[in-house]
Structures are given as structure tokens and as C-alpha cells.
Amino acid sequence: MKIKLKLFLGFFTLVLMLALAGAYSIIEFTRISTSVNAILEDNYQSIQATKDMLEAIEREDSGILLLLMGNFREGRHTISLSDSIFRRSLDIARNNLTEENEQQYVTNIESYYTRYRSIIEYPIVNTSRQGNIEWYETEVYPLFQDLKKAIHTLMDLNQTSMYREAMMLKEKSKRAIMPGIVAIGAGIVFTLIFNIFINYYLVSPIKRLVRSIRNYKRGTVFGADIETNDELKELENSIRDLTSKI
């Protein structure tokens, strides 16, 4: 093999190693980006929706208490406002089903909320329910707690998934860095090996050729013992031919 090709292969291999590591890292970073999207879009949105739902039903509960106290206008206004927030958040959760069994959890919330709403649909102010704490404690409050629990379950599901994704993200970032580290290590070792080969099969033979020519001038027979079958061998043969003709 010719020297030019050998040198080209050496440098090409170095470039290839770097390119490989780069490509590998790009793929891993793309995977990280997908994971970040998964965390942000899938889990974070659902968690935010459940938080909004919790806040909405807390306010709705306050609205019921206002009605119990006989404050009709403010009570109904609070309930109506919270109801629209709750339904909007529930829609977000319903359209963002990313985890196994998430559909079931959302259906549970919907079912509890329908029951909760059915209780407070009837008038409270100026009826026997006004000021009736016992009615609130036996019928409204348990349902309110069940609904909260159902929302919390959905929140936990998404938080656990988010944590898992975050852990995977940590792992993926480690994986993305590792090919680079391996490539640096491999590149250093390869450069050393390449250097040894260049020294052994290119530099040393040239030195031997020069030494042999000098020795020839002092009267010894020319011979540089070139092992490789390349231009240096051809050069040695040419010089030998030349010296034999002199």
C-alpha cells in the first residue's frame, strides 16, 4: 500500500471516529429533546390541569359555604366561575392521555364531579338547606373529598411518570456524553498508535536510508532493510540499483 493511502486512511479513521461520536451524541441529544417534550407536554400539562381542578373545586366549595350562609349572589358567581375553570382543566386532562389507565382516572373525576354538581344544582338559599351544616357534612363534604382524592390520584400518576421521565432524562444525558468521552479516549489512543506506525514505518526507514547512503560513501554495501512494500521500498531498490552501477 502506498504511503499516501496509508496516511489518508489514518486521518480518515480519526475523522470517522469523531463523526461517529458526533452522530451518536446527536441521536442521543434528539432523544433527550423528545424526553423533555414528553415531560413538558404530556406530564406537566396534566399536572397543571389537576392543580387547576383542585383549586376550582376548593373555590366551588367556598361558594357552597357562601350559599349556606345565605349569600346567594356571591355564592353562585363563585360556583359558576370555578365550574368553568374546572371543566376547562378537565378538558385539558381528557385530551392529554399519555399514561396507562389515565383514561380511567379522568372518567372517575368526571363521574364524581357530575354527582357533586347534581347536589348543588338545587337551590340552597331560602330553603331548608340554608345554614344546614349537617346536610353539608353528610352529603356535600364526603363527595368533595372523594373528588379531591380522584384528582390527587391523577396528579400522582403524572408526577410519578414525570419523575420517571426525569430519571430517564438524567440517564440519557449521561449516555449522550459517554460516546464523546469514549471518542476522545479512542482518538488519543489511535493518534498514539498512528504516531508509532508513522515513526516505525515511515520516519525510521527514511533515517535508515540516509544512514545507509552515508555508510555507502564510507565504503560499506548499501542496504536499509525496508520492511514495507511502498515507495520507500522502491526508493531503497532504486538507490541499490544506482549504487550497483557506480
Binding site: 496509508k6 479513521t13 461517529l20 469514549v182 479512542a186 498508535i193 498512528f194 506506525f197
Partner: peptide, 20 residues
């Protein structure tokens, strides 16, 4: 990646070191 690295480090010396 590992297969290619092994191939690189395995094949490259064969180009340089003469069989003789």
C-alpha cells in the same frame, strides 16, 4: 458504535504492519 470502534482498531494495524 462498539463494533465499528473494534473494527477500526483491529483493521488499521493490518494496513501498516507488513505481513513479512
Amino acid at each position: 458504535y462498539c463494533t465499528i470502534l473494534c473494527l477500526i482498531f483491529g483493521l488499521f494495524p493490518m494496513i501498516f504492519v507488513p505481513t513479512s
